[in-house]
Design a protein around this nucleic acid. Sequence first.
DNA 1: GCGAGAAGTATACCCAGTGCAGTTATCGCC
DNA 2: GGCGATAACTGCACTGGGTATACTTCTCGC
Lengths: 212, 212
Amino acid sequence: MLSSDEQLGLRERKKLRTRQAISDAAVTLFLAAGFDHVSVAEVAEAAEVSRRTLFAYFPTKEDLVLHRFADHEDEPARVVRARPDGQPPLDALHEHLLDRLAHRDANTGLSDDPEVMAFHRLLTDTPSLGARLLEYLDRGVRTLADALAGSGDDLTTRLAAVQVISVQRVLAEDNVRAITGGATADDRYPVAVAAADHAYDLLRAGLAEHLR
Amino acid sequence: MLSSDEQLGLRERKKLRTRQAISDAAVTLFLAAGFDHVSVAEVAEAAEVSRRTLFAYFPTKEDLVLHRFADHEDEPARVVRARPDGQPPLDALHEHLLDRLAHRDANTGLSDDPEVMAFHRLLTDTPSLGARLLEYLDRGVRTLADALAGSGDDLTTRLAAVQVISVQRVLAEDNVRAITGGATADDRYPVAVAAADHAYDLLRAGLAEHLR
DNA sequence: GCGAGAAGTATACCCAGTGCAGTTATCGCC
DNA sequence: GGCGATAACTGCACTGGGTATACTTCTCGC
């Protein structure tokens, strides 16, 4: 398989490299000194571009960090669309989450890779990043609701979408917390699976039985 | 009953009046010209205080608008805590929502008061306000989860909290949209009640039956 | 009415983000 | 290989949110 660069022109390849250089410089500096203690001017200097060019690639300082999530923002929607005929959407989403947990995917919070952990600490320690993360998740809700259209009436699909995304976020936060607290990903894995199963049970069968 | 000012000293009364003057000036100007086209300097001038004083009352420009929501951020938590002995938390929240709808409470989105509508338009038209609103809601999730502690295990209560808040937000957005689209609050009322009932049915009994 | 301390102000500053005008590099084509 | 078109990049100046500091003015309790 060819490297994805190969078929692009020089101009496009340079753009990709510049984008990567800016993002890398940003994350490195932010992890070292904290998001709020690094100015975009310093990031630009480290990446050897002008401040103006930096903003051509990333519309805000927060996006220097969070553009990684943009790639995953429509993942639940894709999972639902790609599910086998006849499989209920919740089953597809549940199955996919278990798969991501098994792969220790960073998005599930179940990774003890030091770089991933530092990244998560950056997110939890920086309010402006947390706020913007909520926006990304909210866009994910809308794409998921679109993908669910046809599986139920409009209101139901929108409610389902917001519940699924919210629940996945809580699960991921719990995993991050456990691992920040010293557990390894392997320690946490069975708990994370049990939590995911429980959460999807609640989504499917409701809260009534478990909340008095 | 005494007006709440009466028992306060002059200093405290002045502070309240100043705070109100700033907030009023802000909302008036924002509604007239749009959030992004009014600077905090203009708000300060209209309220006859210095820019520095404005920031002593409201930590950010967004809070000039959204401090109103801060008062309601722990409302679901209060409802749960104040519920009669033996009533399931979801029933209390459901009942309270129906009550708020019946009163055309602005927070439910079911108000066609022109000022409330303009306020909602401000929220939906201004991304930075929408983002910060999500933060307020997120704090509401945490307070609700605390209030639910004891009604179920920790994970379940946190999942329940995030689902309840998310669902209420979707319901409110739908009401706002309907009314922005030309319906009166009275037109919308039966639909809003049905939607609320349906949403709480889903929370109680799960999505499985309604999502294929 | 007096001293303590809170509220408010003026000024100067930092930094994120934008508009603009000019330079440099790549591209497609001859 | 050279040449215009055009995209990427740069420097600079500006707006506007938010903060630090040092100073003045007001309210409170005695």
